[in-house]
């Protein structure tokens, strides 16, 4: 009897329709998020994540309607993120029926919102999404930290040896990876945990959309250093990648988007097939 590793399909939503991976020949309808959510629930998704990528703020209310309709028919947990900045944004999403809210750039700009949201709604509602990129460091610039067991570079970033003679730190990036922050992702992860975030959604922008596998070293560092669950994201292309992020990356949950969308690509996998594969390889999963 152990806690099952969670599989979390992610739906990118624009103006109330699912967009990612379905802008494809022969599929005119981009997909209703509520219908897709129901199908994922039946297929055995352990949770769902909606990421709103609606650009204009006037059209944000469409999302609230999607959340409300989803909550009426889905009885597994679901998280909503995208454009969350204030505790009022949390309130609207949670009131509409979501179980958790994920905050990303908004937390970087105003970290206090994590503390406030955790106090008002409970830590379990607050997922901090951290998008990161690897920054490689020349071996000559890597030294032992004076403050602890870690390696650092000249700018005091936590440096990890990721391969023989390869060293890197991870930088927090925002605005979908377009803006660098200079912040050390490992330190930011520890900070958001201390501020009351109940979970971390960790996305490698180096591997996101590549379907070449998760950043395992990144996920492992977060999982081992943090005391809250870590959801790995970015790079899932097949069931082996998901197995790797649980066994080597020590993730608590794995988020994936494109492989679960059935749009006729050969990389499509059903959630149940992925779970069967994981189970055969010694990972505890929940079957419906």
């Amino acid at each position: 009897m152990v806690l099952a590793k969670r599989i979390i399909p992610c739906l990118d939503i624009k103006e109330g329709r699912v967009v990612k991976g379905v802008n494809f020949v022969n599929i005119r309808d981009a997909g209703d998020p509520v219908e897709l959510a129901q199908r994922y629930d039946e297929e055995g998704a352990d949770e769902l994540t909606f990421l709103d990528i609606t650009a204009s703020s006037e059209k944000r209310d469409i999302l609230i309607d999607v959340v409300r309709r989803t909550a009426e028919v889905i009885f597994i947990p679901f998280t909503v993120g995208g454009g969350i900045r204030t505790t009022e944004d949390f309130r609207r999403i949670l009131r509409a029926g979501a179980d958790k809210c994920s905050i990303n750039s908004g937390a970087v700009k105003n970290p206090d919102v994590i503390n406030k949201a955790a106090k008002i709604f409970g830590a379990q509602c607050v997922v901090t999404a951290i998008d990161v990129k690897r920054r490689y460091v020349e071996k000559d610039n890597v030294k032992q930290s004076v403050n602890g067991p870690d390696l650092t570079d000249n700018n005091n970033h936590v440096v990890i040896q990721v391969d023989e003679d390869k060293y890197c730190w991870w930088e927090v990036v925002i605005h979908g990876g377009r803006t660098d922050t200079g912040m050390d992702a490992i330190k930011w992860g520890l900070e958001v945990e201390n501020r009351g975030s109940g979970e971390i959604l960790l996305t490698s922008m180096d591997t996101d959309g590549m379907r070449t596998g998760y950043d395992l070293e990144l996920t492992k560092e977060f999982s081992e250093r943090l005391n809250v669950p870590v959801i790995a994201s970015g790079g899932a292309g097949n069931e082996q990648h998901i197995l790797d992020v649980f066994s080597h990356g020590k993730a608590d949950a794995a988020l994936a988007a494109s492989i679960f969308h059935d749009i006729g690509e050969d990389y499509h996998r059903s959630i149940e097939d992925v779970k069967d594969f994981l189970e055969r390889n010694g990972i505890t999963v929940r079957h419906v």
Binding site: A4, D46, N227
Partner: peptide, 11 residues
């Protein structure tokens, strides 16, 4: 030393 909260599916 135990990850807290317990979040997820258990039997």
């Amino acid at each position: 030393g135990v990850k807290c909260p317990q979040i997820g599916w258990n039997t």
